[in-house]
């Protein structure tokens, strides 16, 4: 199956999850593709900035992101499903972020 079909399938899955039952329009498909490409390219470029901390970390991270990009291709439908408007998932991500920020601070202030 070509990449385009995979993406259309994924969009359909997400729409079934939303129970909207609308046909996949060309606008929806092209904007999902654009979002996908934007997401991957900007994350790849952002990951290169890890070179300010350590080159090895940067190489590992770039390879990781690239492999995710190849093997888990339509990321955007998943991202959309994760960033939904449900209160419980919002609180979950919030507390996760709180944990990450506070933990990183101890690591970061020692290493940066």
């Amino acid at each position: 199956m070509s990449l385009y079909d995979t993406i259309i399938d994924k969009i359909k899955q997400v729409q079934e999850y939303d129970k909207e039952g609308e046909p996949v329009t060309s606008i929806a498909a092209s904007s999902t593709l654009a979002a996908e490409i934007t997401l991957l390219s900007s994350i790849l470029v952002a990951v290169i900035m890890l070179r300010y901390f350590s080159n090895a970390l940067m190489i590992i991270a770039v390879l990781l992101v690239a492999s995710i990009a190849i093997f888990a291709m339509p990321l955007m439908p998943r991202f959309k499903r994760e960033q939904n408007d449900s209160l419980n998932s919002m609180i979950f991500y919030m507390i996760l972020a709180l944990g990450i920020i506070t933990t990183l601070f101890y690591w970061g202030s020692l290493n940066v």
Binding site: A34, L39, S42, M76, Q83, L104, V112
Partner: peptide, 25 residues
């Protein structure tokens, strides 16, 4: 604290990437 700026940049980048891609959807 040099790291405070790193966190600010990381949060801002995440805001830009996640929100603008979500806006497309």
């Amino acid at each position: 604290l040099a790291f405070s700026k790193v966190i600010i940049i990381a949060l801002s980048l995440a805001a830009m990437i996640l929100s603008i891609t979500m806006a497309l959807m």
